[in-house]
Amino acid sequence: MLEIADLHASLGRREVLHGVSLTARPGEVLAICGPNGAGKSTLLRAALGEIPTQGHIRLNGHAVGKARPAEMARIRAVLPQDTQVAFAFTVAEIVAMGQEAGDFAADPNLIDQALAAVGLQAHAARSFQTLSGGERQRSHLARALAQVWQPMGPQGPRWLFLDEPVASLDLGHQLQVMRLARAYADDGGGVVAVMHDLNLSAMFADRLAFLIDGRLAAEGPPAEVLTPALLERAYGCRVALNTVPARGPWFVPQACEAP
């Protein structure tokens, strides 16, 4: 369980999050959505203990930011938005770093399995610095997966934190990555993802946390959160929502009008 209570966070002198309370449960994909500058990434970074905050954040009962990094590394892995790597490590070496940080360091097949899960098994020996943006992102996802490979552990559920996991991926890999996240949650793990793509969020997430101006504007199942009123408030354009096929709301940007 990820519990966030009355969270305030500032970047520089500007307060970016104004009292956000949110819970993410294992077995669930929680998508953090909202317009640019709403505080999505800040909320994720705060939930990871990367920035100083006021408020309470607990993951599986550990106080985030106070617990030892090595302890937290065993129950959660993070896919960053910034995927740069210094020095010419190979893809397999990057994934191995994740593997060694988690509970599965002894598994000799894990690197192959993690790379296969993101469709990069043929690229294990390539230098990371020669990869395309999308391949880098998937390599990092393989690293994160190798760190928390089993969604359930003896100490409770493990967690994936994904910062815009499909931002630089093509359509096929977007679906592949979202299915991975879905399957991880279905097997008992927790997934928290910052998402730009509302359609993919609606397809794969159990719940959406929708931020506007650093406040939680709505929270719940996609069909309840993604209302025309909220989207107009958030994005400043009228959105024609559809619900066919029956997997929740979706829309096409072509049908969005200026108010």
Partner: peptide
């Protein structure tokens, strides 16, 4: 050595991989 390897991915990632950065 392991900490420096992890640092190649940036400080935040090194922390998330269990290093006392």
């Amino acid at each position: 050595a392991r900490g420096l390897n992890a640092l190649a991915l940036g400080e935040a990632q090194a922390v998330h991989m269990g290093q006392d950065v």
